[in-house]
């Protein structure tokens, strides 16, 4: 075989091999993308109305049409809440300029967390618009919403509250739970918000 035909044969082989690899890569990347965007529907938030720190009513209707990240905290909690709220604040900053993505923190100690206390807590985390709302209400209503609506444990509140962040889609359906204290989970949550946001009408 001459040098030139040998070269032709080698480079001729590269084209089909390259095409096969491109096909495999396409399939793998496509499946990976699909696995991140096809989040399961875990549950639906029932009708509820609570009171936001700016004295307006906030309920299921306010969740619809937007993506929401919800957590349950109380302002004088010395355990996981400061880390959870710091992580929530980071998400709030990341999605600055996107009113279609909102953050909701519901107090599990409404007796202590008055509207004023919650406003001060919000200001400490740099909240300056309505993208991050702080809600209060009757403890029985909050415990029921937490347990039956968000499917999180609500025994022995406020001390034993869940540390999960809950991702809701624009129809107030639960699409994922994330450890509100874990930076790696926050990375996953960011990717899931990004993916759902790109599917918004």
């Amino acid at each position: 075989m001459s040098k030139h035909s040998q070269t032709k044969m080698i480079f001729g082989l590269f084209i089909p091999i390259g095409l096969v690899m491109a096909l495999i890569a396409y399939f793998v990347v496509d499946r990976a993308k699909e696995s991140v965007s096809d989040l399961p529907v875990i549950g639906e938030i029932p009708q509820f109305v609570l009171l936001a720190s700016d004295s307006t009513a906030f309920g299921t209707e306010e969740l619809k049409g937007k993506l929401s990240v919800v957590d349950f905290i109380f302002t004088h909690c010395k355990g996981p809440c400061p880390v959870m709220s710091a992580n929530m604040a980071e998400l709030y900053d990341k999605f600055d300029g996107h009113p279609e993505i909102q953050f909701v923190s519901i107090t599990v100690d409404p007796l202590t967390d008055s509207l004023g206390v919650m406003q001060e807590y919000a200001a400490n985390f740099g909240v300056d618009d309505k993208r991050w709302r702080f809600l209060t209400g009757q403890i029985e209503d909050i415990a029921e919403l937490c347990e039956k609506g968000f499917l999180l444990a609500a025994d022995d509140l406020p001390g034993n509250h869940s540390t999960k962040f809950v991702l809701l889609d624009d129809q107030a359906r639960i699409r994922g739970y994330y450890d509100g204290r874990d930076p790696a989970s926050m990375t996953v949550l960011t990717t899931h918000i990004q993916s759902l946001a790109r599917q918004l009408p």
């Binding site: 793998v28 499946r31 990976a32 699909e34 696995s35 991140v36 994922g176 739970y177 994330y178 450890d179 874990d182 790696a184 989970s185 996953v188 949550l189």
Partner: peptide
């Protein structure tokens, strides 16, 4: 492990 980190497709890749 936080369950939110589990994605069967990404784990297998």
């Amino acid at each position: 492990f936080d369950a939110s980190r589990f994605n069967i497709v990404l784990a297998w890749i």
